[in-house]
Design a protein around this nucleic acid. Structure first.
Lengths: 208, 208
DNA sequence: AGCGTTGTTGTCCAGTTGGACAATTTTGGA
DNA sequence: TCCAAAATTGTCCAACTGGACAACAACGCT
């Protein structure tokens, strides 16, 4: 009666279900039984793949962000630097950032998750720094300290994402406008350039 | 045998204990029994003061932030505008921001908390906007759109706080340096001015 | 002193949780 | 074909959860 799946397939199925639930209900309130029901298995089976609940949610976060950043990076590589900046700072899908915010708040109490958050945040700063370097090399921007600029602009984007996604203080258009203006000022790009270049395909979704 | 307290006194005692536990363990994992044990009462008594757990944590957040912002605002009023900017953007106590980050992630699932977060975030932007206006009036800074600058700089401070407090990516000194530089650039203040002015008394603690 | 209000207690409940584990079924290779 | 390994099930458990509630004790008022 059991539709038996290969180990890897089942593992990814569980991770996918976990992510979907985390996006909907937050890390703290996702239970093993929730995940099992979403997949259609018994909750005991999850223990066969993940040693603990903490390990499961950390693995889910890590898996999703790894895949998404790789896809984003590939997409950015195909754009000219200005279009890449516009795409990178455009408002991301709702579920994406709510999971990040949740991860920030959960990290102090879940070491495995904290490590993943730290690593992927560094990835984000590195990806942005690479784009800035390309823009500078192309003469489209200027930067005295690329890493510092990347760190500052990443922090700004995170803060605006909180205002938009978690608090609903600003809509997507207003958030983009504020971030674009700050990026342009910081990198000596003519005002309005990024908004005009913002024709990139939407960033990847997690929960297909 | 019962040390009977006045209604208001007991209420604040419960709120204080709740905040202390939220800072330590996060909103989601604070239970009524935890709070009761911290205060030294029976968990049933909490129901006498707060209709539900959600209402308790929202009230605790609201109460603490209200008090702290009032105290901060009074302190800022006693400083010249540049010193006030430096004080406002100096790294805040650890427990303070961890609670904010936790509130962001909990807000989508706790309407009362969401309302408090939204209201107090607006307070923060307003307080900063007032300081910027004083700085502009004093000829110490310039701003084309005070509200936009306040919103952008608040988002930046939040994002840096995440990097510092939740991820440990940067230490307090580096975070201050990045934020100070961005504030100076945005408001046309000479570089280094804020670091030199950063002699303000530490912002208030919650968990006395 | 008597009395109503209210702070306070202890106990109960039905439900949920993460984890453990033996039993069963399926798979894949010898 | 047979068997060891791996996937999967069902069930158990001890602990904990928020909430309900009746009983008790201290208080303010008259």
């Amino acid at each position: 009666m059991a539709e038996r799946k290969s180990s890897e397939e089942r593992r990814e199925q569980i991770i996918g279900a976990t992510l979907r639930l985390v996006a909907r209900k937050g890390f703290a309130s996702v239970t093993l039984r929730d995940v099992a029901a979403e997949v259609g298995i018994v909750h005991g089976l999850i223990r066969h793949y993940f040693a603990s609940r903490d390990e499961l949610v950390a693995a889910a976060f890590d898996h999703a962000v790894t895949a998404e950043l790789a896809s984003d990076e590939a997409m950015l590589a195909g754009l000219d630097p200005i279009a890449a900046l516009a795409a990178w700072f455009s408002t991301t899908p709702e579920d994406h950032y709510l999971v990040w915010i949740d991860a920030w708040s959960e990290a102090p109490r879940n070491p495995a998750l904290a490590a993943a958050v730290l690593r992927h945040h560094s990835d984000c700063e590195r990806i942005l720094a690479d784009v800035i370097r390309r823009a500078v090399a192309a003469g489209a921007a200027s930067s005295l300290d690329v890493d510092a600029d990347s760190r500052m602009l990443t922090a700004l984007a995170d803060g605006m994402a909180v205002q938009h996604h978690a608090m609903g203080m600003v809509d997507a258009a207003a958030a983009d406008e504020i971030v674009f203006a700050a990026v342009e000022a910081r990198l000596a790009i003519a005002p309005g350039t990024l908004a005009a270049a913002d024709r990139a395909p939407a960033r990847g979704q997690w929960l297909g």
